[in-house]
């Protein structure tokens, strides 16, 4: 069972290609972190997965074959857009009633209990709540719909560290209880290492990595050596290196550890791996710009 499948997905806007040839197969039950620089195409991918935007070419399905945005998909997928947009002028209580009336499935008791637990005042106007409280309200409404797939666009970006921790703890609690899949975009590498078990790294509309976290960490190493020492070794891709040094760190990707025999290499953190890919992408962009000018 897949939570999200895409096949050569491409989305072109009039001035820019937001996604190019993205192919993904994300197993159900995953907690997927979607990372990449601003403008990489993260939001576009999430909007296609929720049916808010149509692909230019290629296809996407959610929860094993459902077309995003179809009635069947809408009932089983919940989405919280960036900055958790909510109706600001009505009270929290009214908002819960509204959500209940608008959704075929809505667990009202859960919503009430959870808002009480995170100490969101029932009668207060939504616009008067703090950013952290608004994020909690948006998450509660989305979770009360009992989705099988929850899609969150930068859910923690406006939260202070404590609110962020509480938000993630509640999210993980729900994942443990219901087994739902989650796809969330984030700029916080420390956060994703903690809560995610699957990573999609996207740069300039193209997917660089899409794997379970453990596999990513297992297949990357930092090798400290002279640049020439890596020549002629098989099944190895150098992702990131310090330029113009006689001896330095190289981030390499390999499935065959044997190829590194005799070199001083060590495992590295997910954060360093992602940074390596981002630096590489930036380097390529700089070279392209120099080439053009």
């Amino acid at each position: 069972m897949n939570a999200l499948t895409t096949e050569k997905l491409t989305k072109a806007y009039s001035t820019k290609v937001a996604l190019h040839d993205c192919t993904l197969a994300i197993p159900q039950g995953s907690v997927v972190a979607l990372v990449g620089p601003n403008g990489a195409g993260k939001t576009t991918l999430l909007e296609i997965a929720t049916g808010l935007v149509k692909a230019t070419s290629g296809g996407a399905t959610v929860l094993d074959g459902l077309e995003p945005g179809s009635l069947a998909a809408l009932q089983r997928v919940a989405f919280v857009a960036q900055d958790a947009p909510l109706y600001q002028a009505i009270s929290v209580g009214s908002l819960v009633h509204l959500a209940e009336a608008l959704n075929p499935i809505f667990d009202r008791d859960f919503a009430i209990a959870r808002l009480k637990e995170v100490e969101v005042p029932w009668k207060r106007r939504v616009g008067k709540l703090s950013g952290g409280q608004q994020a909690q309200v948006a998450l509660t409404l989305a979770m009360a719909r009992r989705p099988e797939l929850l899609v969150l666009d930068e859910p923690t970006s406006g939260l202070d560290p404590l609110a962020r921790q509480e938000f993630l703890a509640h999210l993980m609690n729900q994942v443990a209880t219901s087994g739902m899949s989650v796809i969330f975009s984030s700029h916080s590498l420390a956060e994703l290492e903690r809560v995610a078990d699957y990573l999609v790294l996207i740069v300039s509309g193209e997917i660089q990595i899409a794997s379970p976290l453990e596999e990513i960490v297992a297949h990357h190493r930092v090798v400290v050596c002279a640049p020439g020492d890596l020549d002629g070794r098989h099944e190895i891709e150098v992702i990131d290196r310090q330029l113009d040094v006689r001896f330095g760190s190289h981030l390499v990707r390999t499935r065959n550890m044997e190829t590194l025999r005799g070199l001083d290499s060590h495992a590295t953190t997910l954060e360093e791996i992602v940074l390596g890919y981002l630096r590489r992408a930036q380097g390529i962009r700089v070279l392209e710009e120099i080439g053009r000018s």
């Binding site: 907690v31 703890a169 993980m172 994942v175 443990a176 903690r194 809560v195």
Partner: peptide
């Protein structure tokens, strides 16, 4: 319980 661990330290339940 797995649920209590993830609620207290905000990590993925599969890790627990």
């Amino acid at each position: 319980k797995v649920k209590d661990v993830v609620s207290s330290i905000a990590i993925n339940p599969n890790t627990v």
